[in-house]
Design a protein around this nucleic acid. Structure first.
Length: 458
DNA sequence: GAATTCCCCTG
DNA sequence: CAGGTGATATTG
């Protein structure tokens, strides 16, 4: 229960835990704010409290332009400047071939401000931040891939092997070859058939059978292949169709990735996409205790549980929309029909543009949902990185769909699908059996709680 | 670092 | 409502 006193203290402290739970109505100005708003705190005698933005607006207040209490909790606007800096950092790492000017343009801010933001939040200018990551990635590739030094240099976004030499030497004091010689895991496989091989190490245990079966049940024929120890998928990266195989190597505790050498320049993207699909960076030794803390019994926790990822938000959105209100089997059969009819090459997943133009005669679906699918594809075509607020503006895309995509296609480990029907049933059944679950206690790992509950057999 | 924008207070 | 203050985000 949020009492007035609690609200007052929360807003004075700008406590982020209360963000979204109530709003501050400032009577003297007719403006309403979030508890975290950075503006000078109004006097208590001038404020009222409301518990939703709708309520506030209905009372005649207009949203503050600083904290944007009207925007949805998913949007960048809601999350403020900190996420701009985080997005910038992410883009600098993931698009190493793109100029820094271009990055600031994509963020909608000036190059100068980007520089300032990076200094403020990471204490390092963008250029330096990027080079640092390029060196780390290069080091990793030297250790864990069979790429030549030349390939590594171009792969991480340097224009020449010489550049790699300079930067790597200034950071580590070693030359690329010295780094390669000190590699911990010997690479038995030399480059053959022009395939690049990269090892992705994970921290065990790893429940590969669960992941494999999950993917097998939702396979897109042609785009994906599954075998006992491997998952193969064709990624769409900047117009290229890159077939990547991820092979489970339990003895060595890594996945072995392979893909054609002609896509060296995509290696950062490929590694990041595969890492997401495999949820490679999950740390079970931290997650399992968190799950126990919130009330799960150890028998209900699968050791090595991972979130089966989807490497593109577009694909995740398509799967989610076609999955609304139908069974998994029905949903995937629709996805497959769509893929068979509209895929450009049988391997590559449909492009947003093609989908937005299609009459969708290939699938049986209510007209309203077809419209939703097309509008969504149009949005992804025009603005691939559109934030979730824009998704929600589409008729037919609601909080469930967005949350589901957030769970499977972003690296947010804290997506709690408390509105999901199955989750509610599970919670109810557990409660009746005398087992209470306090989801907040396993933050920031609530994605794993969501999956654990889905997996529960009752 | 100045200028601008924004919000809140007081009279 | 006007005028004044303090603070933040952003630009050039």
């Amino acid at each position: 229960m949020l009492t007035r006193e609690l609200c007052q203290r929360a807003r004075m402290a700008r406590d982020p835990r209360f963000d979204g739970r109530f709003f501050i109505l400032v009577r003297s100005t007719g403006i309403f704010c979030r508890p975290v708003c950075k503006v000078r705190a109004p006097l208590e005698k001038n404020v009222d409290y409301a518990f939703s933005a709708i309520e506030a607006m209905n009372k005649g207040y207009r949203p503050c332009l600083r904290c944007r209490p009207d925007s949805s909790p998913y949007s960048y606007a809601w999350q403020g400047v900190k996420t701009t800096a985080q997005r910038a950092a992410k883009m600098l790492v993931e698009a190493p071939h793109q100029s820094i000017d271009k990055i600031s343009e994509r963020l909608g801010i000036s190059a100068r401000y980007l520089h300032k933001l990076m200094l403020a939040h990471f204490d390092i200018p963008p250029k330096k931040y990027r080079v640092f990551h390029q060196v780390l990635m290069a080091k990793r590739l030297l250790h864990y891939s069979n790429m030549s030094v030349e390939q590594v240099a171009h792969g991480v976004g340097f224009n020449s092997a010489r550049q790699l030499q300079n930067h790597i030497k200034s950071v580590t004091g070693l030359t690329p070859l010295q780094i390669r010689q000190s590699k911990r895991v010997p690479m038995q496989t030399p480059q053959q058939d022009n395939m690049i091989i990269v090892h992705l190490q994970y921290q065990g245990p790893y429940d590969w059978p669960a992941l494999r079966d999950f993917f097998a049940k939702r396979l897109i024929q042609g785009n994906e292949k599954i075998s006992e120890h491997a998952f193969t998928k064709t990624f769409s990266i900047n117009g290229d169709a890159v077939e990547v195989t991820m092979r489970y190597m339990p003895k060595q505790s890594y996945f072995e990735l392979d893909y054609s050498h002609e896509y060296v320049h995509h290696c950062a993207q490929i590694i990041s996409m595969a890492s997401r699909i495999l949820d490679i960076s999950a740390n079970p030794s931290v997650i399992a205790p968190a799950l126990e803390l919130c009330g799960l019994q150890s028998a209900q926790i699968r050791p090595g549980l991972r979130i089966p990822g989807i490497c593109s938000r577009f694909e995740a959105g398509v799967r989610a929309i076609l999955g609304q209100q139908v069974s998994v089997t029905a949903a995937i059969s629709q996805v497959n029909k769509l893929h068979a009819a509209l895929s450009p090459s049988a391997h590559e997943f449909v492009s947003p543009h093609t989908l937005s133009q299609s009459d969708l005669a290939c699938i049986k679906l209510p007209e309203t949902r077809k419209n939703a699918l097309r509008s969504f594809a149009k949005l992804m075509h025009e603005d691939p990185n559109a934030d979730f607020e824009k998704w929600l503006a589409i008729k037919g895309i609601g909080p469930w769909t967005v949350n589901y995509v957030n769970l499977r296609a972003t690296d947010n480990p804290d997506v709690w699908l408390d509105t999901d029907l199955v989750i509610r049933q599970r919670l109810k059944a557990l409660a009746e059996a005398g087992q209470a679950i306090d989801a907040d206690k396993c933050a920031p790992w609530r994605s794993y709680l969501t999956f654990s509950l889905w997996n529960l057999e009752l």
